[in-house]
Simulated scan of single mutants.
Amino acid sequence: MQSELIHDSDFGRYLEDFKEGMVIRHWPGKTITESDNNLFSLLTMNHHPVHLDQHYASEATHGQVLVVGTLVFSLAVGLTVREISGRAIANLNYSEVLHHSPVFIGDTIYAESQILSVRSSRSKPDRGVIKVKTTVTNQKGEKVLSFLREVLIPKKN
């Protein structure tokens, strides 16, 4: 499979720009700070001490504060916007969200997406749907998250 790293493309792609099997390495990554994790925890009402209390977390399974899993997922989706959904009409669904390994404060996450399928809309000829699998790794190359999504994308003409 061919991998593509894009730095200077237009924001988003049209349906015709996606090819089944295409692999896109999203850049840049995102280093998750304590402030990111604290703010997300508080905004989403996830006040579990394993995400906010260093002393509590130090005595828990991983021995340190865990980044909230939904923050990792949200950041991963955000990392893909430029190349996957920048021109999207809608994100239709997310499925098979799997947390493979924990993410800690100070970890940097990177995303890579594979286009699983590309099809024209059955009801509207000016658009189509792509199915994408995104895999997220940390700075050590360890897989931390993966998910599938389907995105409604406009055609060029």
Rank of each mutant, 00 (worst) to 15 (best):
R149S: 15
S123K: 11
S120Y: 02
K19R: 15
V65C: 01
E142Y: 03
V151F: 05
L92N: 06
L79Y: 03
V23L: 08
Y94Q: 09
R13W: 01
G106H: 01
T61S: 06
V103K: 03
E20C: 04
L116M: 13
Q64N: 11
K143D: 13
D10V: 05
G21A: 03
L145I: 04
A90R: 10
E112C: 08
N46H: 09
R13Y: 12
S113M: 06
R87K: 15
K156Y: 11
L148V: 04
N138G: 05
V72S: 13
G141S: 06
V118Y: 00
E4D: 08
S113T: 15
I32K: 12
Q2G: 09
S3Q: 14
I89W: 04
T80K: 05
I130D: 02
K133S: 05
M45Y: 13
S121V: 05
S41P: 06
H48L: 11
I24H: 06
S121Y: 07
K156L: 13
I130T: 12
S120L: 10
H47C: 09
R149I: 02
T70E: 14
L92H: 07
G69N: 14
S123A: 08
G12W: 05
K156P: 02
T61G: 01
S101I: 00
H26E: 11
I6K: 06
L75M: 15
S146V: 04
L116Y: 04
N93K: 07
T137I: 09
I130G: 00
T108L: 04
I32M: 07
T80S: 12
T70R: 04
H48C: 06
E83P: 09
Q64H: 07
V118T: 05
R87A: 00
L75N: 00
Q139D: 11
E83W: 04
G63V: 08
G69L: 00
V65S: 01
M22H: 08
G12L: 05
K124L: 08
I84S: 06
D53Q: 14
G12Q: 12
H51E: 08
R119Y: 07
S41D: 05
V118Q: 02
E150C: 07
L92T: 03
Y110V: 00
Y56F: 15
V81G: 01
I6R: 10
R127Y: 06
A111W: 02
V23M: 13
F40H: 04
Y56G: 02
I89E: 11
E142H: 05
Y110W: 08
N46G: 10
L52V: 06
T134K: 02
H7N: 14
I105G: 00
F18I: 09
P102G: 03
Q54R: 13
I24L: 14
L66C: 12
R13G: 00
V129A: 04
K124S: 07
S41Y: 10
R122L: 12
N37G: 11
H62K: 01
V103P: 09
W27S: 15
P125N: 15
Y56V: 12
L15E: 00
A111N: 03
K124F: 11
G86M: 13
L148W: 01
M1V: 10
F11L: 14
G69Y: 00
H48N: 14
I109T: 03
T80F: 04
Q139A: 09
V72Q: 01
K124G: 01
N38P: 03
S113A: 05
K124C: 02
F11R: 05
K155A: 13
K131F: 02
I32R: 02
S146H: 06
V77M: 11
T31W: 06
K19C: 09
T44Q: 11
T44Y: 10
